[in-house]
Design a binder for these strands. Structure first.
Length: 227
DNA sequence: TGGCCGCACCGCCTTACGTCA
DNA sequence: GTTGACGTAAGGCGGTGCGGC
């Protein structure tokens, strides 16, 4: 079973990079400053139909009689243009916002709100995808953990009744392997000192660690994605 | 130069409305 | 016609950065 591969990104940071607009530029002399964000650009006839209710309600709200909040629905064309703009920039500077608002015949505030909500939706979607990924990865690790536990049990059983290992040269039984538990990582290792090793290296025994065995054994690599 | 204030913007949470099954 | 779920525009609040005083 393959360990679920980590994605290219080693980070789960939800960063939205906006080329050229890392932060909102401060434009003290911008015409946007001092601009009434509730100012309504000229409304075309085809827009009045859906905007009128909202506009009227805003005016109604000034009478302080608890304004019923009417919801304005953006037209498909407006949504399309906003989406298109969002693909280019996830945030807007004041000039872009104003221009877009003019183009869409919306208030700059509406454009701003749409972008805020759009960023939120984008982030939510990303979070859901990452959640799904982590779930699958957890399932993969659980399965791998089960396999390793099983392998540990098998190795423990081997310790009770150690197998006879024959020397490839003399065909005589070699000293029994000893299973030990690594105190640090709790991995089971086996230490085997062969006659061949002794012949080759008088300086000390050579340890053959199972951890260095092929990936199909206990040493199955546990890929840990950088989170 | 540091502190304060106002402004604009943001993210986050929530509310309220429109739509649809 | 009613209802509940869902999507989303908009309100509210706190935080941040910047410019002016």
């Amino acid at each position: 079973m393959a360990v679920f591969p980590p994605t290219g990104s080693s980070s789960l940071e939800l960063t939205i990079s906006v080329p050229g607009f890392s932060s909102y530029p401060s434009l003290p002399n911008s015409s946007v400053r001092g601009l009434d964000i509730n100012q309504v650009p000229s409304i075309q006839a085809d827009q009045e139909e859906w905007m009128t209710a909202g506009m009227e309600d805003e005016e109604d709200s000034s009478n302080g009689s608890g304004p019923p909040r009417k919801k304005l629905r953006l037209t498909k064309e407006q949504s399309r243009l906003l989406e298109e703009s969002f693909r280019q920039h996830h945030t807007l500077n004041p000039k872009q916002k104003e221009a877009l608002a003019m183009q869409l015949k919306l208030r700059p505030r509406q454009v701003e709100v749409w972008f805020q909500n759009r960023r939120a939706r984008s982030k939510l979607k990303q979070t859901e995808m990452e959640c799904e990924y982590l779930k699958r990865w957890f399932g993969s690790l659980t399965e791998q953990n089960r396999r390793l536990q099983r392998e540990v049990e098998e190795l423990r059983a081997m310790k009770v009744g150690p197998p006879t290992v024959l020397s490839p040269h003399s065909c005589e039984p070699l000293p029994a392997s000893t299973l030990t538990m690594c105190p640090r990582c709790e991995r089971v290792t086996t230490t085997t000192t062969t006659t061949l090793d002794r012949d080759r290296d008088r300086g000390g025994p050579t340890k053959t660690n199972i951890s260095s065995a092929p990936a199909t054994t206990l040493s199955s690599k546990v890929a840990t994605p950088a989170l």
